[in-house]
Amino acid sequence: MKWPFGVRTSPATETSERSFRDVVMPHLDSAYALARWLVRDPHLAEDVVQDAILRGLSYFASFRGGDERAWLMRIVRNTAYSALAARARSKGRPVSSYESLDDAAALEVVDPGDDPELALIRQAERAALEQAILALPVELRECLVLKEFEELSYKEIATITGVPIGTVMSRLWRARRTLQDRMLEGASHDA
């Protein structure tokens, strides 16, 4: 008889350890990026990734194959939500702006071929857009980030966030409309 799924008949050995590693290592950048966008704090994001790896290891015995990245990202996402909840309980301070995600952005050298003034404006616009994304409600932000930066499909995003595809679509829509409104506000404010 052929088992339909990868049923483990003997205790997990070195192979399963290695395969957990194989699942995790290629997706660390994605895992960290998601954590960073969700918790908006570089140190907490590191803790989230580490915690998620530990949790993933606990869950791994029950992992039945499938989309490895989505599986890991879902754990990261849930861990980030726990971390946010824990922090909300302990502090709950309102934040008006967030630490830039790109530590190097401030030092970025302007391409000498560009009009320096234009380059500065574009950089400021990018920073404003980044802040607008960080200010989105977390359930909109996660859909947007998974779509635009991780280039995941609606189905994968639905798996990770645990909501139906229709909800993913409407959240993406709301996220984008909100950003467009913010950008327009910013532009008229500057003018």
């Binding site: 895992a31 960290y32 966008w37 570089p42 635009e148």
Partner: peptide, 10 residues
């Protein structure tokens, strides 16, 4: 424009 933002890496 969103994709011009560099998403962080680990």
């Amino acid at each position: 424009r969103i994709r011009e933002i560099r998403s962080p890496t680990a």
